[in-house]
Design a protein around this nucleic acid. Structure first.
Length: 153
DNA sequence: GCCAACGTTGGC
DNA sequence: GCCAACGTTGGC
């Protein structure tokens, strides 16, 4: 089993929105970055654990945990002209973009803030805290996962 | 294949 | 709203 971190803007779709979905499950569409796409398509497996990270908001940090319920499949929004994720250059015979389904698992009592994460020397190598990192789907090591869980309490 | 221009991300 | 950092595009 592997660990991941998915970024999301809670103003658009946050952990509370996931909780309110039927079966507390939602497809993670709209990822339009090739490196993140490769993770979604090739590497993220059923049962993998995911930190939900809230970005671009007043409380930036990890909000809780979700679990992968369905492995990579074609993100249909790339073919929908009405979707903001529409990609006219994507060929239906060879789709560019993929997504997975995740189910809510746990919400932290408090957001585990980016500030706290950055302040922990043991997490200095996390991809999340590297300068200029913009990946919206990234791997988390088992060691990092354990430390973060302990910090979340 | 290079690289300037552009658009986007995301913390602050 | 600012702006640094990055990925993508497209002319050459």
């Amino acid at each position: 089993m592997n660990y991941w971190l998915f970024k999301t803007e809670p103003d658009a779709f946050g952990i509370n929105d996931l909780i309110e979905r039927p079966q507390q499950t939602e497809h993670w569409d709209g990822v339009r970055n090739y490196q993140a796409r490769n993770f979604l398509r090739n590497e993220i497996k059923l049962g993998d654990q995911v930190f939900l990270y809230h970005s671009s908001c007043d409380k930036v940090g990890i909000a809780g945990i979700a679990e992968v319920m369905k492995e990579g499949y074609v993100d249909h929004t790339q073919f929908d002209p009405d979707s903001k994720y529409y990609d006219p250059k994507s060929d239906p015979d060879k789709p560019r973009w993929y997504m997975v389904d995740i189910r809510f698992k746990r919400k932290f009592d408090h957001i585990l803030s980016l500030q706290e994460i950055k302040a922990n020397p043991a997490l200095a190598d996390m991809q999340l805290v590297q300068k200029g990192n913009r990946l919206s789907v990234m791997p988390v090591t088992a060691g990092e996962w354990k430390i973060l869980l302990a910090m979340a309490g």
